[in-house]
């Protein structure tokens, strides 16, 4: 039973890892960020490239991926997203476009492949990230053998969640972010630099996706399209948990992950997927604002 719960926990942690960044960009800023999955993809490519070109270990890729994707996020916010606040559907289309741009720039090696220049680690092919031997195999916990890599992901997710919570609820920056979530105009009237805070929030959300990418590269293949399926899972979690609520996101990922694991083990993976979607639909129908949502006045 410990193992079953562990698998569920592991599925939950992966969902949360992807949804955490989305919970901030979608939840806090009201941007449907379709490029979020591609930030995950870029994080994964950073892992591939830092191994090939800088000969850095898997662990060293984590901060690099965060910085790279946060910077890309900052640029995207400055150039595109900033102009689209309060235009929900337009953000969807614009970020979808960005998503395609990002995928193609990796696939075409920033256009260099047209000139016959090939960069190792980019291009349309599948890339391989080797997981450090410490994280391969199993660890013995509470009488059962658990997959070491999954334990590591759970730990990283827990740390990132704590950091995010601390930033949102224990810093003055977090107060500003939460003020903007509740009412951007009022926040601006109180002297908060809404544009600057939004830009940094978007960059932070993108950086979280980058770290998720490093984690995903360890057990998925790395290829330009890898983000498109992940972003769907991310939105499922955020919508179920309730827009703008970090607790909701944590709870929803835990719920969906455990349901998925339990159903998968006692029947099969295909039915598990169907059950997860059924639960999400039920939640949306019964509680349109998600499990936890902020009640505005």
């Amino acid at each position: 039973m410990v193992e079953v719960l562990f698998i569920g926990l592991s599925l939950s942690s992966i969902l949360l890892l992807i949804a955490l960044g989305l919970a901030i960009t979608y939840g806090a800023m009201g941007v449907i960020n379709m490029a979020h999955g591609d930030m995950v993809m870029i994080g994964a490519y950073v892992t591939v490239m830092s191994k090939i070109w800088l000969d850095l270990s898997f662990f060293a890729a984590i901060p690099i991926a965060f910085i790279v994707t946060a910077l890309i996020g900052l640029v995207i916010e400055r150039l595109v997203v900033r102009r689209l606040y309060n235009r929900l559907l337009d953000t969807l289309l614009a970020t979808w476009g960005i998503s395609i741009l990002l995928q193609q720039s990796i696939r075409l090696e920033f256009g260099l492949s047209f000139f016959g220049i090939n960069i190792e680690g980019l291009g349309p092919g599948l890339q391989n990230v080797s997981v450090p031997s410490v994280l391969q195999g199993t660890v013995h916990v509470a009488g059962t053998d658990l997959n070491a890599y999954r334990v590591f992901i759970i730990a990283v997710t827990a740390v990132l969640t704590l950091v995010t919570w601390a930033i949102l609820y224990r810093t003055s920056f977090g107060v500003q972010v939460r003020a903007i979530i509740r009412n951007p105009q009022m926040a601006a009237a109180c002297g908060i630099d809404v544009k600057r805070v939004n830009a940094l929030t978007f960059a932070f959300g993108s950086g979280l996706a980058g770290v998720a990418g490093v984690m995903m590269s360890g057990f998925k293949t790395v290829f330009p399209d890898m983000g498109s399926t992940l972003v769907v899972d991310g939105f499922l979690v955020v919508v179920t948990g309730g827009v703008g609520s970090i607790y909701g996101t944590i709870l929803a990922s835990g719920l969906l992950g455990e349901i998925n694991a339990l159903v998968a083990l006692f029947s099969n993976d295909i039915i598990a997927r169907a059950v997860v979607f059924a639960v999400v639909i039920a939640v949306i129908v019964l509680r349109p604002k998600g499990l936890f949502s902020f009640k505005g006045r």
């Binding site: 193992e3 997959n147 999954r150 998925k220 293949t221 998925n260 998968a264 083990l265 993976d269 598990a272």
Partner: peptide
């Protein structure tokens, strides 16, 4: 690509 349950 989520194989945890199946491999178990």
């Amino acid at each position: 690509s989520e194989w945890a349950a199946m491999v178990k």
